[in-house]
């Protein structure tokens, strides 16, 4: 009897109790579902027939399923494939250049024996506190640096993030003992050699975190395209999607295959399902990369929130 009581008491001290835990679970399930359901909904809509949408609107249970939207995308999605390529290209090149610059800068800031350490720390950090604002930056980029209707315009303005530099530096200082660098220097290893052969292998998780965050930012970017891109040739996925909101025919306007029949094709376009099919195309790569991303990004966020 006494034993049972103690056991029960112990249980009470270690958990919130069954009823409370059930309520917690319900609340969390509801919110978790809320986070994911919109995406499921969009998938369902993209597979509904136009007929069903006219009848009952967007619904989780369409009266008729159809793959017409995907048919259209595959048949005349020239613009879509073009944009897919642009997004992948910008994401890959942008991330590679950006992470290289970030590692180099953060590594120099991490070195205590760097003479201008505090100057360059302030030099990067100041830009997060005060800036020229959108209009001057836009005009400098467009008119002085020629960032307009080219791939550079989608890559260059997002290359540097002082926040990631600080995160990267924190990774360096938390995983590399000072003596290691001294030892390498005594062995006659050059600075760059030390960085590539010794430092980088140790900080792989940190590099993965910052790379993934950067890649995500490039993949999700539409703002730079909205500012600097007018030519459909360079439009990335996210901006294509944004344009489709107001003009669904944008997707086929530039398609070489249909040419003169544009008006005819546009009038038969399954506009609402086509839009949603495109959303699915944009989100699918993220869902595939998500498990990966999640692990590293959580590691990065928790370290980033602790100042180094």
């Amino acid at each position: 009897m006494a034993k049972k009581f103690i056991k029960k008491r112990k249980r009470n001290l270690m958990s919130v109790g069954l009823p409370a835990e059930i309520i917690f679970n319900i609340v969390l399930i509801l919110f978790a579902l809320l986070c994911i359901i919109p995406f499921v909904f969009v998938i369902v809509i993209s597979f509904s027939s136009e007929q069903s949408i006219r009848q009952i609107g967007y619904s989780f249970f369409p009266s008729e399923w159809s793959v017409t939207a995907y048919d259209y995308v595959f048949k005349m999605g020239d613009q879509l494939w073009r944009s897919y390529f642009n997004s992948f290209f910008v994401t890959i090149v942008g991330t590679l250049v950006s992470i290289t610059m970030c590692i180099l800068y953060a590594y120099a800031l991490f070195r205590r024996d760097f003479k201008f350490r505090s100057f360059f720390t302030m030099f990067a950090f100041f830009t997060t506190l005060f800036g020229g604002g959108l209009a001057p930056t836009y005009m400098v980029c467009k008119q002085l640096l020629g960032l307009s209707d080219n791939y550079q315009a989608l890559i260059v303005p997002a290359l540097v993030s002082p926040f990631y530099i600080i995160v990267m530096r924190t990774f360096f200082s938390s995983s590399i003992p000072e003596e290691l660098i001294e030892a390498a220097a005594i062995d006659g290893s050059g600075e760059y050699r030390t960085l590539v052969k010794i430092i980088l292998p140790i900080t792989k998780p940190g590099i993965a975190t910052v790379s993934l965050l950067t890649a995500l930012a490039y993949w999700n970017d539409w703002y730079l395209a909205m500012l600097y891109i007018r030519d459909a040739k360079f439009i990335p996925l996210q901006y294509l999607l944004m344009k489709m909101q107001s003009q669904v025919d944008f997707l086929v306007k530039n398609s070489a295959k249909i040419g003169a029949e544009v008006a005819n094709v546009v009038s038969q376009l399954p506009s609402s399902t086509l839009r949603m099919a495109l959303v699915v195309f944009v989100v699918v790569p993220i869902t595939f990369a998500y498990p990966f991303f999640q692990r590293y990004i959580i590691a990065g966020l928790t370290i980033g929130s602790v100042k180094g």
Partner: peptide, 9 residues
């Protein structure tokens, strides 16, 4: 180029 020059703007 992208942060300090625009300050003059």
């Amino acid at each position: 180029l992208l942060r300090y020059i625009p300050l003059f703007g």
